[in-house]
Design a protein around this nucleic acid. Structure first.
Length: 100
DNA sequence: CGTCTGACAATGA
DNA sequence: GTCATTGCCAGAC
């Protein structure tokens, strides 16, 4: 667990329910701009039973970057928080739920 | 040490 | 709107 990872977790934990954030924004908030890719890598290592809201992280185009089972898992979790998502992973009310 | 990879982002066609 | 290209950086090999 390094400083980068720690900071990512800290900021991610503060994303309110019903809101989402992009990988780039999260990295930036954590104080590491240009580390968007590493954010995804870090989240991928999280245990299944983590309490962190990893599902509130999407790419800058407002769509889910996952595929297969993980995709549906994230989709369902988000819809449970009131965020509508298309079958193709596109977030409907993206502009309303994305962090600004 | 050189290369490749990835839950990405910004830009342009 | 979508797709391709380029830049990015830490880890794996």
């Amino acid at each position: 667990m390094n400083e980068f990872t720690q900071s990512i977790y800290m900021n991610l934990a503060q994303i309110p329910k019903g809101r989402i954030i992009s990988y780039g924004q999260l990295a930036k908030l954590a104080g590491y701009p240009n580390h968007s890719r590493h954010v995804g890598k870090t989240l991928a290592k999280l245990p299944k039973d983590t309490t962190l809201p990893w599902h509130r992280v999407v790419n800058s185009q407002g769509r889910i970057s996952l595929s297969g089972d993980s995709f549906y898992k994230q989709k369902e979790r988000l819809e449970k928080e009131g965020i509508a998502i298309c079958e193709n992973g596109k977030i409907m009310n993206f502009k309303q739920v994305i962090m600004q």
